[in-house]
Simulated assay, not measured.
Amino acid sequence: MTSLVGIDDAALQAQALALGQQLQALRLSLVTAESCSGGWIAKLMTDVAGSSAWFDCGMVVYSYEAKQALLGVRAQTLEEHGAVSRETVLEMVSGALARSGASIAVAVTGIAGPGGGSEDKPVGTVWIGWKQRGGYARAQLFQFDGDREAVRRQTVAAAMSGLQAMC
């Protein structure tokens, strides 16, 4: 189990500010494609004053239909692998870049709970994908501890950490 302890609102806000500064310094713009985090990453990014210089857009894609319509995730991918899978998050992050003017993307999909988990994909299972325009998408599986709020908070922190590592 992965646990990112000590993540409070102030820590997330500081992380968003630092990420925004990195993006601006590198002249990169960000697009987010969020399922289980429900737009929390985009909210944190746009809470930073001046974010219009480096934040392009955010998409909340909770349903299969939204993932398909807004990001181009293939129905076959969702049927064969499910929404919470490496294959789906890779299509999400690639679709976000293809459908935006951004230069870097993050996508998240997972099971925040309290229900919805299974033996194969328990509550706390989260896939995060990252991609820079012209580069290859990468994805990482996380298994977070805690209740719905904790899983979502850890997802947001891990997504931003991955972006910071790419910059």
Rank of each mutant, 00 (worst) to 15 (best):
L141S: 02
T77W: 00
A112Q: 06
R138D: 10
S94P: 00
L78I: 14
Y136A: 09
L26W: 07
V89L: 01
E87D: 06
T32Y: 05
K131M: 15
A105G: 12
A16M: 04
D147P: 09
Q140V: 13
G82S: 07
W127R: 09
G82A: 02
A14D: 15
W130K: 01
L26T: 07
V61I: 09
G6A: 12
Q154N: 04
L163E: 05
S63C: 08
G38A: 15
A66T: 15
L30G: 10
D8Y: 14
L17P: 00
I41Q: 04
G58I: 14
A18I: 08
L44N: 02
G95D: 07
Q68W: 07
V61C: 12
D147G: 08
A112R: 10
R152Q: 04
G124R: 09
A49S: 02
C57P: 00
S103Q: 11
F55C: 06
R86G: 01
G116S: 07
P114T: 03
E80L: 10
C167N: 00
L26R: 14
T155I: 10
L17T: 06
T2D: 15
V73E: 02
S94L: 02
A102I: 11
L4F: 13
R138E: 12
V73L: 00
V60C: 10
G95H: 06
C57V: 00
A10I: 13
S29L: 07
I104V: 15
C57H: 03
A25G: 07
I41H: 00
Q68T: 14
E91T: 11
L71V: 12
A83V: 07
R152V: 01
L71M: 04
I104Y: 13
D145N: 04
L90M: 14
R152P: 01
T77P: 01
C36H: 09
A10F: 11
I111N: 07
G58V: 15
T155R: 08
S100D: 04
E87F: 03
S85W: 03
E149V: 15
A14F: 08
G110I: 04
D9K: 15
S100V: 06
D8L: 14
A150L: 04
G72W: 12
Q143R: 14
E119N: 09
G113F: 00
L90Q: 14
M160G: 05
A137Q: 10
G116T: 12
L12I: 06
V93Q: 05
G6V: 10
W54Y: 12
D145M: 06
V151A: 00
V108R: 00
I104K: 14
A33H: 11
L90N: 07
Q164G: 11
R86I: 05
A18C: 04
F142R: 04
G110A: 06
R153Y: 02
G134A: 12
G101V: 08
C36Y: 03
L97N: 05
A158Y: 08
Q154G: 02
Q68F: 05
K121G: 06
L19A: 02
S37C: 10
E87H: 05
G162E: 11
V156H: 04
T109L: 05
S35V: 10
W40M: 07
E65H: 11
M166Y: 08
D145P: 00
K67D: 09
G110Y: 04
A16Q: 06
V48S: 04
A159C: 08
L30V: 11
S51F: 05
Q154T: 07
V151G: 03
I128T: 08
